[in-house]
Design a protein around this nucleic acid. Structure first.
Lengths: 169, 169
DNA sequence: CCATTACCATACGCTGGAGTATGGTAAACG
DNA sequence: CGTTTACCATACTCCAGCGTATGGTAATGG
């Protein structure tokens, strides 16, 4: 429901309707709507954290790791949709810390890869932030239907362009 | 109110309270909350459109124009805050078309500047989208308090880095 | 001078979501 | 075999925002 309509759409009564149960039942499993959201957020963050290590941790060549970071945008659709909606809900007290940790983790990964490619630590940090900004901006454009379809050759060409611009070597 | 708390915070009763009037009075001036939001959106879009032409249209040197685009992120705080919140409300039926037009206008400007710098039309379009993504991603990071303060020297250094990476020549 | 117009307040009804109180049922268990 | 436990429904209350009905007042104009 977060992926479809955003954080605020994760509400007790709509959820219950959708599941064919009632509120009474829901409140046996969760103490409040806040608790439900917290569980959902924790679940997603864990999944995302594992994903980061599994998918990118294995690739030893730093350039391939970075390239894979961009190519991944096209896959794992659900997770990206959730993240996109979470970004839209920045400012929400429960969402904010999640976003902070996730962005931090990911940028640290990027920064390490850029350092391995020979950039000095400061430049690597800047480049990581820049790269992550591109990713965030892409998600935003996607929410506005301003990106070519993910499976078109224009999309692939654009990704090529981004890779060539941002990844040295 | 949009800049402070987002589109959904622009509500009739809170607005009336804040102005020290009542709902009854509000509904004499506006037919509905929707109408108010529409007027606010139109107003902002017009202001932004004029701004684009005034600030960037005058600069003849395309590189300076691009550099000024980035430097502007630090200024015009209110407008950027509004835009940032509008982006968060993408998916909203009234907000969506505004976002689409604004992004289109701005990217067209960027694309033209890159063409003037010698890029072929396709590369210029890609580079414009990339550049605009960086801007959107920056706004997002700002919403998450993940950027250095706008008036620090680290911020200036980062902007330098971005300019050097994205603007040819 | 009376009536219309512009502007604002009071007081209502409606809706949707949060949370609670209470009772029902089926399975497991002592 | 009765009772506890897990799970679910019904039926409320509470609250905040949207919109409306209606009446008051001050200024303006025929």
């Amino acid at each position: 429901m977060i992926a479809e309509q955003g954080v605020q759409a994760l509400a007790v009564e709509p959820l219950a309707r959708r599941m064919g149960i009632t509120k009474g039942s829901f409140y046996w499993h969760f103490s409040s709507r806040e608790a439900l959201l917290q569980r959902a957020l924790n679940r997603w963050e864990e999944h995302d954290s594992r994903n980061l290590n599994n998918a990118l941790g294995e690739i030893s060549n730093p350039r391939d790791r970075l390239v894979s970071f961009f190519r991944r945008v096209g896959k794992e659709k659900l997770t990206h949709e959730v993240y996109s909606e979470l970004c839209a809900a920045a400012g929400h007290a429960q969402v904010e810390p999640v976003l902070e940790r996730v962005a931090q983790r990911r940028m640290t990964h990027l920064s390490a890869a850029f350092e391995e490619l020979g950039l000095d630590p400061v430049a690597a940090r800047y480049q990581a932030r820049l790269t992550y900004s591109v990713y965030l901006g892409f998600l935003q454009l996607q929410r506005q239907n301003q990106t070519p379809s993910l499976s078109s050759e224009e999309f692939d060409a654009y990704i090529e362009h981004v890779i060539n611009t941002l990844i040295p070597g």
